[in-house]
Design a protein around this nucleic acid. Structure first.
Length: 210
DNA sequence: TGCCAGGCCCTCTTTAGGGCCTT
């Protein structure tokens, strides 16, 4: 996969963005030419309280957030870092709603689509024991990216998984280079129809060469 | 007043229910 894609991950203090529920950390792993070429990570202070269960899960404490830069500064920097690069995340519906919410507080709006490594791995790696990011990383023997449930480590794990999914597609279906638009299309095809869809795509690519 | 996620996917489905996945 040669295309540049920004793989993002948020740590948050809950699951539904709003006045009391905000992002606490963002990590971005920038993928290009089949590898991670750039990284962005920062804690962010949005003035929200992190419950003990989530402090324990992420290792991000209320004290750490009090010392962190303001959320609006971090998000402005993150938005500049990502620019118009196509986005990806593991369970993108989660990260997308926080990305959109945090941008909206800056008066900004997302212009690009999200590819989802959860939806894609359910379709392309059905033999995996489950489709949690950590399980897939261990199962596929992907590189150790650091402490799970920290934003950059999770973003790097998702980036490695995205590259694996691209390689799997190219190897199994002998497709020309995989791009973000194809991944977004694939995640909308139902799991049962994804293989016929790819075989059809393969035959059309072979036809166009011949 | 009290409660509070939500999108995706499978199946014992579609007039629904429950599990997965993210923090």
């Amino acid at each position: 996969m040669r295309q540049r894609i920004a793989v993002i991950d948020f740590e948050t203090n809950g699951v539904t963005p709003g006045r009391d529920c905000r992002a606490t950390e963002i990590g971005v792993a920038m993928v290009e030419d089949g590898r991670v070429v750039d990284r962005f990570q920062s804690l962010m202070n949005a003035g929200v309280w992190v419950p003990p269960m989530i402090e324990q899960l992420t290792g991000i404490s209320n004290a750490m957030l009090r010392a962190a830069p303001p959320a609006h500064e971090v998000m402005r920097e993150a938005a500049r870092f990502v620019g118009d690069t196509p986005l990806a995340a593991h369970n993108a519906s989660f990260d997308r709603k926080f990305w959109d919410h945090e941008l909206s507080l800056l008066g900004l709006a997302r212009r690009q689509d999200f590819a989802c490594t959860l939806l894609l791995s359910r379709r392309l790696l059905p033999q995996a024991p489950d489709h949690k990011l950590g399980t897939l990383t261990r199962w596929a023997k992907l590189p150790d990216a650091g402490r799970a449930h920290r934003a950059l480590a999770d973003a790097e794990m998702a980036a490695n998984l995205l590259l694996l999914l691209g390689d799997t597609l190219q190897r199994q279906f002998h497709l020309a280079d995989i791009d973000h638009a194809l991944l977004c299309k694939l995640q909308k095809v139902t799991a049962a129809k994804v293989k016929p869809y790819l075989l059809d795509l393969q035959s059309r690519q072979i036809g166009s060469i011949a």
